[in-house]
């Protein structure tokens, strides 16, 4: 970590905007130009940007559903096995598995497992934690978490052409287009 990272191949081209509405219109243009490996970075989720970028729904809710079903079933199985099979509790002649009395724990574990699935599912789908990324090494990019709005087109996009894409980004009306380089640790 001590040495300044040396810069490698071109990772992406980047421009940035001051206002959410310029940013959104720029995103619409990038979407319509047919790029696939590009992204928009903003200090907060800009309302309406999903459509402007053409992002489709996430499968996260399904992961959470699976987590919830797992928690519910695990709680039922655990209580049945522990209190009715492995160590039967006979209390006032009541049935060994009494669903009403077992329901609170089933509910709590449903919520617990769903929340874990949601938390880890979201970070997993987002590819995080990832502490090492060319954008994070770029000083200008630091304001993405503060007050500026960035549009980044990656070099691996099939439609990427360093000259044409640079001209296209410049035409969007943002600040000067900048090259983002891959990090090469020295």
């Amino acid at each position: 970590m001590s040495a300044t990272p040396r810069h490698g191949a071109l990772h992406a081209l980047m421009t940035d905007f001051e206002s959410p509405s310029q940013f959104m219109h720029a995103c619409e243009k990038v979407r319509d130009a047919g790029f696939r490996h590009w992204d928009a970075h903003s200090p907060f989720p800009v309302h309406g940007l999903d459509d402007a970028m053409g992002i489709r729904g996430t499968r996260l809710p399904w992961i959470v559903l699976v987590g919830g079903i797992t928690g519910f079933s695990a709680a039922l199985l655990m209580q049945w096995w522990m209190n009715a099979v492995d160590y039967p509790y006979v209390i006032s002649g009541k049935p060994l598995l009494g669903l009403p009395a077992n329901f609170p724990v089933m509910f709590e574990l449903t919520v617990l497992f769903s929340a874990f699935a949601c938390f880890f599912g979201m970070w997993g789908l987002n590819g995080m934690p990832r502490l090492h990324h060319p954008l994070l090494a770029n000083d200008r990019f630091r304001r993405a978490s503060q007050d500026r709005f960035y549009v980044v087109i990656e070099a691996r996009d099939p439609k990427f052409d360093s000259e044409k894409t640079r001209a296209f980004l410049a035409s969007l009306g943002g600040a000067a287009v900048e090259e983002v380089r891959e990090i090469v640790e020295g």
Partner: peptide
């Protein structure tokens, strides 16, 4: 965690 304010991430994050 390496959060870089990507809207593709915000999208799942908000969900």
């Amino acid at each position: 965690l390496g959060w870089r304010n990507s809207h593709r991430h915000w999208h799942r994050y908000e969900k």
